[in-house]
Design a protein around this nucleic acid. Structure first.
Lengths: 145, 145
DNA sequence: TGAATACCCACGAAAGCCCATGCTATCCCT
DNA sequence: AGGGATAGCATGGGCTTTCGTGGGTATTCA
């Protein structure tokens, strides 16, 4: 669990940076609001470009105003962020608002992408896996990382 | 039976390391709380990459609520751990809590995965195989390896 | 010119790295 | 068969590096 400081800086966990750099050869990531949950969703650049391409294909073969358009609007609200020499990004107030992010932040790796949560918001969600809930509760209670 | 030391280090049995490296070509493993029993469950990383690939196939460019929930339950409570040159991992206090692990640890190979138990917790479980129980009792009593 | 961003250094804690020590199992030799 | 050397394993301790974080200073841009 990492903190957002007074300058809106946020350390990206080193393990996450490692996989990002392995996958996209950049010190850069893409984040945006999640469409369904009160959190942010993030990708490495190369994966994000693949998603964009797939949506582009869908859109090309479907001229109706459907799911594609909605998804595009979501992806349009993303930010490309480079992290600095200390591995920190600057989390804009807009992003913090959209992700309901306070002062503490939880990075959750989910395979090809990751989510950024306020721990408290996560605990208030319905239908999460009980093991994950227990783990996050322990984190919030301050028992180690 | 192996011990967790003051730095939370834990030796992974060399036989287990051998099969892990044979299966995934890495000195790395994945552990998480078991869904049904008070212990930890562990896999070699190739197992997890298969799960990841399945999720990717199943959902493709669909980032609906189903995908997130499933991904969180699969990835949210697990840790990827590299072991060092002496074959030791660091077992975080969090994982120890989730698996009810104290200072002594029992690795149990179960085919394509393995479990990590506190011996005492294991003995307190109902419905174990009597032969295994006898073996674990002997281990706890300090006889045999 | 003021605010936001980039760049730089510093510190405490955690994790990684290397070497040393028992201990056990195995081998080998006469 | 017995006994000594050998190698691998689990473990302990100390040193070094990295990580997350706070704070300062320069630079950019409207």
């Amino acid at each position: 669990m990492n903190g957002v400081d007074l300058k809106n800086r946020l350390s990206v966990p080193s393990s996450l940076r490692e996989t990002i750099e392995a996958r996209s050869q950049t010190r850069e990531l893409v984040i945006g609001p999640d469409e369904h949950s009160p959190c942010l969703i993030g990708y490495d650049v190369s994966y994000f470009e693949r998603i964009e391409a797939r949506l582009e294909d869908e859109f090309a073969s479907d001229f109706g105003p459907g799911r594609s358009l909605k998804s595009r609007s979501v992806f349009g609200a993303t930010e490309h962020l480079k992290y600095d020499d200390n591995g920190r990004i600057i989390l804009s107030p807009l992003m913090r608002e959209m992700g309901e992010i306070g002062t503490q932040v939880l990075f959750m790796g989910l395979g090809h992408y990751f989510e950024i949560w306020s721990p408290e918001v996560f605990l208030a969600q319905e239908g999460q896996d009980p093991r994950v809930l227990k783990l996050v509760k322990a984190l919030v209670a301050g028992r180690a990382q």
